[in-house]
């Protein structure tokens, strides 16, 4: 079990609105999953650097060259709401 207060805090961090029922459900399911995943604490990992990219890949840096491949219309064409070529959202002042 992960307590409901924690679940609600996590949901808020993740910006997911959840119902009381969902909070109950997650508290159980995530609790159960985490209890299982917890077993990695048994592994002695002293001095081991965590791994992110698993294979050897050469470094690649872009040259500083500007290009324009897209129009602002294309970039805003999927917007749920817009004004001209700007994305429209609730007031955030």
């Amino acid at each position: 079990m992960i307590d409901k207060k924690t679940i609600k805090h996590i949901a808020k961090l993740a910006r997911l609105e959840i119902t009381e029922d969902e909070a109950d459900e997650y508290s159980q399911q995530l609790g159960k999953a985490m209890a299982h995943f917890e077993q990695i604490s048994k592994v002695d990992t002293t001095g081991i650097e965590p791994l992110v990219t698993p294979t050897e890949i050469d470094d690649f840096w872009r040259e500083d060259v500007a290009t324009q491949e897209f129009t602002p219309e294309e970039m805003t064409s999927n917007a749920p709401a817009k004004a001209g070529n700007l994305f429209k959202v609730p007031p955030v002042v």
Partner: peptide, 13 residues
């Protein structure tokens, strides 16, 4: 950039 226009906010990336 957020641009505050009237009742809404507009976003320019």
């Amino acid at each position: 950039k957020s641009i505050h226009q009237g009742e809404f906010t507009m976003i320019n990336y």
